[in-house]
Structures are given as C-alpha cells and as structure tokens.
C-alpha cells in the first residue's frame, strides 16, 4: 500500500546521494592536495587574498582564468578588504596577497612574512559626490581640503569603515586635514566592500572616497560625479607578495611564486593596461612592473 511513497523517498535519497557523489568527483582536490603537500610537491590550489576592488572591477575575472590556464594551479580567490587580506597573510591562511595599502604592507614585509614583494599597478582614488555639490568641493586641488569642506558644511560622507586599503587611505586624508571624523548623522560607516558602499552613497546622496576602477565599473548605476581627482597622494598602488613558506606549514610556495611572476610578466602587464578600455573607454589600471614606487604619478 505504501510502495509509492517508498519509491518517492528512495528516489529522493538516491538523488541526494548522486549529487554527493558528483560533489566528490568534481572536487577531488583536498585528498590529492594533502598527498602532494606531504611530498612537498606542487599542490593544486593557491589561496589568493585580495581586495574587493580587484573583484568588483572585474579585473580578476580576466586575469585568474589566464593564470590558471598558464600555470595549471587553481586559484581560490578570497576578496576581502586589504586589512583582512593582510591579516590572512599574517596568520599563514593565504599563499599570496594582492593588496593596496603600502604603509601596512611594509610592516608585513619587514617582519619577514611577506616576501617577493612586487609593484604591480596603480590607479587612483577619487572623491565623488552629488552633482549639486553642497560642500562646494568641485575642482579643489587637494583631498584634505575637500574633506575639510565636507565636514564644515555638514554634508554626508559615507566611509568604508572596514579597515580596507581605501578606508586606510581615507583615514590618512582626514588626519592630514586635522579632523577626527566621528560616526554620526553625517559621517556613516558601511563596513562593506567598495561596490556596496557606492550603492549606499548613491542612495544617500553622500560624498565618498573610491578607487577609480570600481567607480567606473559601477557608473551605470550612479548619479554621483567625480569632484576631486589628480592629487599625487590619491594614488592607489597595488602590490603582490607571497607569504613566506618558512614561517608557516601548508603554504603553497611554488604556486604563490608562480602567481607573483604571472602578475609582473609582460603579457599580464599588457592585459592590465588594456583592461576596461572596451567597456569604459579608458583603462582602469596602469601597469607598473619594474617602476619605482616613488616615481608614480609624475
């Protein structure tokens, strides 16, 4: 009498089992990886800790598949703020870092955790805000002047507030303006990635500091316009580094080294220089391999 139900139950159980098997088949890596790691050989995966801007701008969607094709490694990209990415490196939870907060990166390099530290590319930060520009910052020469005026006029400023590279840069500008921003009605922290923060700034008609790449990638949804740009201190510089395998177990040093080499190779640098041109009419990043960081923006 209950054979029909039995069948249904069996079918469902079978389907779930099947999907489990599929799951196991598709990702046979962990076991394989362990064996290989035990032999100290090339492992299949590398963990890349990076910033939200490289993911939200779409750059990684272009570079990662190319790297995987060339090197045979599978990249696990974890897109978090630069603060979190550096912390992952510090604990040995990532193999390689692509980040943009030079001052904090130097601490990691000095401590011997970050090695093979290379300049990859830059773009710049811009201050955007509503078209009618209530704080009258349009065309100001320096970012600190602009933030001062925003604060004085009581206009809304949306901060990342997530310890990311962009957030660190913003805090540095506030400092040079001699202002300590306090979270309140006109200074709000989103605690989220750049893309999401742009959405929030848009909805609240606020000012914000953003990297140019994410802004251009999101521009189709934004009425906010660029108001301050071009100052040298607004450069947004990206470095790549690998995590020192001597400091932690389980680091995929070869994979990390391959990724660093890939990022500064001539072909990749060329891809970076043309990325975004077809969509936005201008490149989103400028490749900088072999340049001196101090010379950028000259």
């Amino acid at each position: 009498m209950f054979s029909k139900t039995k069948w249904l139950v069996l079918t469902v159980a079978f389907l779930i089992l099947l999907s489990l098997v599929g799951c196991a088949n598709k990702n046979p890596k962990p076991a394989e990886e362990e064996n290989k790691a035990a032999e100290g050989n090339k492992t299949a995966d590398i963990i890349l800790a990076t910033t939200t801007s490289t993911q939200d701008s779409g750059l990684l969607d272009v570079l990662i598949p190319e790297f995987e094709k060339q090197s045979g490694y599978k990249v696990k990209t974890i897109a978090v703020g630069t603060g979190a990415a550096l912390a992952m490196g510090e604990k040995g939870d990532a193999d390689v870092l692509l980040v943009h907060a030079p001052a904090d990166e130097k601490k990691l390099v000095d401590s011997g955790i970050g090695i093979n530290y290379q300049l990859v590319m830059h773009n710049d930060f811009i201050i955007i805000g509503p078209k009618d520009d209530p704080a009258k910052i349009s065309g100001l020469k320096t970012a600190s002047e602009a933030l001062k005026k925003i604060a004085e006029s009581g206009s809304m400023f949306i901060s990342r507030g997530d310890n990311s590279g962009t957030h660190k840069k913003e805090l540095r500008i506030w400092k040079s303006a001699g202002i300590t921003p306090k979270v309140g009605a006109t200074y709000q922290e989103t605690g989220q990635g750049m893309g999401q923060t742009l959405n929030i700034a848009e909805q609240k008609s606020g000012y914000t500091l953003t990297d140019r790449a994410t802004y251009l990638a999101q521009k189709k949804n934004l009425s906010l316009v660029i108001l301050v740009e071009g100052e040298k201190s607004l450069l947004n510089i990206y470095h790549v580094m690998q995590v020192n395998p001597e400091k932690f177990a389980n680091i995929n040093a070869r994979g990390a080294q391959a990724f660093v080499e890939f990022m500064v190779s001539p072909d990749t640098q060329k891809m970076i220089s043309t990325f975004g041109v077809d969509k936005y009419g201008q490149p989103l990043f400028t490749p900088d391999e072999g340049k001196n960081e101090a010379d950028l923006g000259k």
């Binding site: 990702n27 962990p30 362990e34 790691a37 696990k76 604990k91 939870d93 932690f248 177990a249 389980n250």
Partner: peptide
C-alpha cells in the same frame, strides 16, 4: 583555517 586546529584537513574554501 590553516592556522586553526583542523587546518591540516585543507578543506577551508571548499
């Protein structure tokens, strides 16, 4: 996480 007690399993981000 690799730095965690079960890090040797290597299954974070899978």
């Amino acid at each position: 996480w690799r730095s965690g007690p079960l890090g040797f399993l290597n299954i974070i981000y899978t």
